[in-house]
Design a protein around this nucleic acid. Sequence first.
DNA 1: GTAAAATGCCCTGTCAGGCCA
DNA 2: ATGGCCTGACAGGGCATTTTA
Lengths: 353, 353
Amino acid sequence: MNDSVVEIGSRAGALPPATARLSDVAAHAGVSTKTVSRVVNNEPNVRPQVRERVMLSVVTLGYRPNAAARALVTQRTHQIGLITTASSLYGPTAGLFSLEQAAWKAGYALTLTTVREPSEGELAEAIRYLLARGVEGVIISGATGVLHLAPSALAGMPVVSTSPVSDAAPNHVVVDTDQSMGARAAVRHLYDLGHRRIAHIAGPLSWHAAVQRRDGWLRGMKDAGLEPGPVVEGDWSAKSGHEAAFSLDRAEVTAVFVANDHMAMGAIRAFTEKGIQVPGDMSVVGFDDVPEAAYQMVPLTTVRQDFVAGAERSVRELVQLIENQPIETTSIYLPTELIVRDSTASVIALDTA
Amino acid sequence: MNDSVVEIGSRAGALPPATARLSDVAAHAGVSTKTVSRVVNNEPNVRPQVRERVMLSVVTLGYRPNAAARALVTQRTHQIGLITTASSLYGPTAGLFSLEQAAWKAGYALTLTTVREPSEGELAEAIRYLLARGVEGVIISGATGVLHLAPSALAGMPVVSTSPVSDAAPNHVVVDTDQSMGARAAVRHLYDLGHRRIAHIAGPLSWHAAVQRRDGWLRGMKDAGLEPGPVVEGDWSAKSGHEAAFSLDRAEVTAVFVANDHMAMGAIRAFTEKGIQVPGDMSVVGFDDVPEAAYQMVPLTTVRQDFVAGAERSVRELVQLIENQPIETTSIYLPTELIVRDSTASVIALDTA
DNA sequence: GTAAAATGCCCTGTCAGGCCA
DNA sequence: ATGGCCTGACAGGGCATTTTA
């Protein structure tokens, strides 16, 4: 056993990974740590050959800067925190990966936090947790009614959220889908098909998005001069849509605007069970355009929202806030698109049936 | 404009929140920094009154320990990294939030990373990125065929994944659903209904899960003494299930085992378009049991997997690895459950039809 | 007085920036 | 123009010291 013996076996030498430090690289390259630092951080004033030599040492030793040490001295962590509700609903998750990728591109890492309910207490706890982790900004996504955030809890940290906050803080931008626009387009579409009695199956009204969609429906009805039909509240699940649809009477209603696709699926199933054909006897419009919406037994007419765009925009705004760049507006609403498929039909079809 | 002018407007005074440090608390409470440290970390040997006084100062000054400094000195970050494929497939996302909650409970934060494809290169990059962030372990989830991880890239870091790795590292545990068991149960169920010619719509075979399910189906067929029907490969999407089903001939096949629910939905839609009734003319079994599976027009018979349990187990194993506690096994396979609904029926029904 | 508990000093960990050679 | 040295960013560990029983 001497220095030149190569250890055999997978775990041999599995001591602490023995990460190389700046000083190790310096020693290896025969320069000062400062010079290595300059090379690593791409600063000027290093001769090309020296730079080359240092680079080589960096690779050889597998050096990577210690994030903690760097954060300590630069006072920057390049971490952003994401607070979201812990449910595998399509909406909240759809934008998640886009969020991460946008953050990565902008040079930030994403730390995830979940809350069961976006109550003031839970949010405050999540924020404290993220603050302790040193995040430089927070995105609050999915979920959430109007947020109640004690400004003190935020300690001035930038926030981007899909819902507005009660105490408007200066470092806050709202990025959301224009829910109201989507809902109104749905109503308009049904109106154009001749529907006059249009019900609504809402999401849980503790959610800002659910309220927005309901209000958009309400406003669409009013704009069309129609008396709003009944509203039934669900919880976003197919199951709740199924239950909600059972309480809707065919005699009173010819169409339903449903606040998301999964509830719409449940509703269509329920109508079928009751002997009501979709779209022959009843038109249904969903919201989200989940990937499988087009491939249902009755392909779903729905309102598409662009989660990817929303995620990218959120990160962009947050980074601007963090880096103190000027922002244009504090509320951004992204457009929706109505996707017409087979779950809606003209009332004519109904009267003939 | 001089120093004393207070800036007016939304961004005024958005200077660093001026977080209190340990020494500030110490000064405020009239003790040494070490004592404050003890109080903050709940260590013994501090008189109750002193502890109380320090706590008060902590609250008054809004002190929270600087994560970077703490990480630097303790050589612990309490961060774990998650590498997952960037797609909003149900599987990968379903366990995500459970993962975060389990990590939180164990005292770890979760940093998210996505790869487009689980290639060796992309994985290596993701790992370097996480390593640079100081994570203490990695969970590789969703996605992924057999992983090719250069052990050197890992630098001995603990890994838990849903897929096995090619170069088995000692610090590695596989936690996965017992895909094969699920597939065999599906075949068995179809067999018991009298089906003999059973096709398979597979997931993308670059995915380990897809291969496992196909192999399970294959083995189930063999065990039952049946000749395997055709296999068509999809990409997990409803769209691909729809396309795949079109290539299946009713004359050759009376049932299909589909590798996930969304493809199964697309397949059912396709059969319907071709005038093949489900389950009258064709039985379909899915996999996952997505929440809306029960509320399809044809409620889906499917194989349920417990993503929550998988997530919790993954975190548990990883933490054990990180904290150098003994682990029992290096491969853990969680059971599945066959959920029988309406998309499968006896072939008798078919023959009478 | 002694042992034990409580408290504090000093130094370390890693990297970047300022100053100086 | 380059490169070296020293310090600062913050919290925790080891041990020495003071207090208490």
